[in-house]
């Protein structure tokens, strides 16, 4: 009988040729029965929830939690998800920037560069929020974070230094955490997984709520006068991970073998608006079944 569970293998352990044994049991069942099941660790089915959102000592909803995307978010990784025909309102400069991204840039995240906002809001990967009275931290899968000061009196600075997550200011409006971000970098940036562009004129206003215990929701307003002819929105809901689920360390540049082999662009964008293999040539015929 196959058993699940067991000691976690230290990530630092690299077996040498003389190493004794390795193996991992039980998950073959996943592999054979349900190729999609393995992805369940990073996404989760949506749930109905009747429990109210928890609140912090100062009375605000507590956004803290490990949040996972659901399969209802379609297409994932695409910032145009909520736009008719998945069509972004690109200006001519935006079209040129998109073409540049598709043909001359390697996905910054694959080079271990922070994806920033709003890319991380469209990502398929989970994230974790830690909410304090004066700061809110968003912790991302790639061991990146952003730290948002919560202070309704604070204003953007005169000439902020550009960064991947921007200069972020947070304030509460009732039960909504509003995050206003400006001063984004303009090179080595994709606005989503599909290589859509943004400029340094990007301005993002997020409105985060926790409608119930099991859900977090964002309304993202994206404005970028250089590349987009009008502002547009991106809405999304995530579900709470199971108890004990949390972010783990992810040292992106530890052994980035792909770095020197990645081609420009995101690969094909499929008709459903997600990136990935579109058509696959047939594999060699399966080997004859081996009798035990």
């Amino acid at each position: 009988m196959l058993r699940l569970g067991g000691a976690r293998t230290p990530a630092s352990r690299v077996p040498t040729h003389g190493d004794a044994t390795w193996a991992f049991a039980a998950l073959l069942l996943f592999a054979f029965n349900s190729p999609g099941a393995l992805a369940q660790g990073l996404t989760a089915p949506d749930v109905k929830s009747s429990r109210p959102a928890p609140r912090t000592a100062d009375g605000h909803p507590d956004l803290s939690g490990y949040w996972k995307g659901t399969r209802d978010t379609k297409p994932v990784g695409n910032i145009a998800k909520d736009l008719p025909g998945l069509k972004l309102p690109l200006t001519p400069a935006g079209e040129a920037a998109l073409k540049h991204n598709l043909t001359a840039t390697i996905d910054p995240e694959s080079l271990c560069i922070p994806g920033g906002i709003p890319r991380h809001n469209a990502s398929a990967l989970p994230f974790e929020v830690l909410e304090g009275p004066k700061k809110v931290a968003f912790l991302y899968w790639y061991t990146y974070f952003r730290l948002i000061p919560v202070d309704a009196q604070r204003k953007h600075t005169e000439d902020p230094e550009p960064s991947f997550f921007g200069e972020e200011l947070g304030r509460w409006e009732g039960d909504t955490l509003v995050i206003d971000s400006i001063a984004f970098k303009d090179t080595q940036v994709w606005i989503d997984e599909n290589a859509n562009p943004h400029s340094d004129a990007l301005h993002v206003v997020e409105r985060w709520t926790r409608p119930d215990y099991d859900h977090i929701h964002v309304e993202t307003l994206i404005e970028d006068k250089k590349f987009y002819s009008k502002p547009f929105t991106y809405s999304r809901t995530w579900v709470l991970g199971k108890p004990g689920e949390e972010l783990r360390e992810y040292a992106c540049s530890e052994n980035n073998v792909d770095r020197d082999h990645l081609q420009f662009g995101p690969g094909p964008i499929r008709p459903d608006g997600t990136r990935g293999f579109d058509t696959l040539a047939p594999l060699p015929p399966p080997l004859p079944e081996k009798k035990e």
């Binding site: 994932v76 390697i106 694959s110 082999h261 995101p266 690969g267 094909p268 990935g276 293999f277």
Partner: peptide, 14 residues
């Protein structure tokens, strides 16, 4: 191989 959106890069870009 399950879902390029879950990978740190698009498999089809490599």
């Amino acid at each position: 191989t399950v879902g390029s959106a879950l990978a740190h890069h698009s498999f089809a870009a490599e």
